[in-house]
Design a protein around this nucleic acid. Structure first.
Lengths: 152, 152
DNA sequence: ACTTTTACAGAAAAATATTCTTTTTTAGGA
DNA sequence: TCCTAAAAAAGAATATTTTTCTGTAAAAGT
């Protein structure tokens, strides 16, 4: 399942725009429809292409605040982590959650309407979790870059 | 340009899967093709739907390391920030960059093949920028959640 | 009461995806 | 060098989907 140059070209295009037609792609890489079709299906089947999604505008949906939460747990046992993870999975405001090395245990990214909503989230949803010991909030002042495009 | 419940249903579906056909959506929300078509086009035109992208598998592309870089600049002037921003935009490993409040200036998310690549990135690409004063690296040990789905 | 606008339905036309068959290319072995 | 098998690509057909057009009904404004 090694990716050749043609696969990579297709992936680069699809990362840019999931609505490129097979014909668009075929034209851009000088191939006919068939190999493009077959390769895309293969890449989907192999899981290289995970899914096709729509990217919406945060602000137009009323989500004007982004924050990073650096969370420290009470204990570092498996059960504590798992309990925390399961709770996080249920929270739509949490768009990223990574277990990390360093002075704290988790780095979360939260997208939420405003400061008031964040206050509520912090006090009523996050800090009340039994696994959570400390929360350090880093507020985003301005978004410089945000992309789903991975280096290929 | 207020979003009604039908718009929101369409957006929720498209966030899940950009390859749902208009017919799929029409069936799921009990409408005919026409209103679904018109609403999707309107949402695109208004910029609520920004783009359609393919989500690829990091690891299958050989990117096995994710890190957060907390960067402090040498100065906090506009020119310093802008210079840094422009450099960041050119770096494909940097998938997120936010100007933040707190003990450092920027929070970056880096997706990269391995520790050796990160070492190279850190030493030869990031720390050499004239605007950069300090870099604190937070390594991701395990990804718990990562979604493009915004709360609606 | 009449007109205009908005939202939706249905059908036809155009574009696209999918499948099937054929051709070309490539690599390995006699 | 030739032959064969496998892989990759082209071309053509069929099926689906998107797009456009026409029409209807309800709501809003005059």
């Amino acid at each position: 399942m090694a990716l050749d140059e043609i696969d990579k070209k297709i992936l680069r295009l699809l990362q840019e725009n999931a609505h490129y037609t097979l014909k668009d792609i075929a034209n851009k890489i000088n191939l006919s429809l068939t190999p493009v079709h077959d390769r895309v299906k293969r890449l989907e089947k192999e899981g290289v292409i995970e899914k096709y999604v729509s990217i919406l505008n945060k602000k137009k949906l009323g989500n004007n605040l982004t924050v990073y939460c650096q969370v420290t747990l009470t204990k570092t046992t498996y059960d504590t982590s798992e309990g925390f993870n399961l709770s996080i999975m249920e929270m739509p405001e949490v768009v990223e959650c990574n277990y990390v090395s360093g002075n704290f245990d988790y780095m979360l990214k939260i997208i939420i309407p405003d400061m008031e909503s964040y206050h509520h989230f912090h006090q009523k949803k996050l800090s009340v979790l039994p696994e959570v010991s400390l929360i350090n909030t880093v507020f985003v002042i301005s978004e410089v870059k945000s992309t789903t495009v991975l280096p290929i």
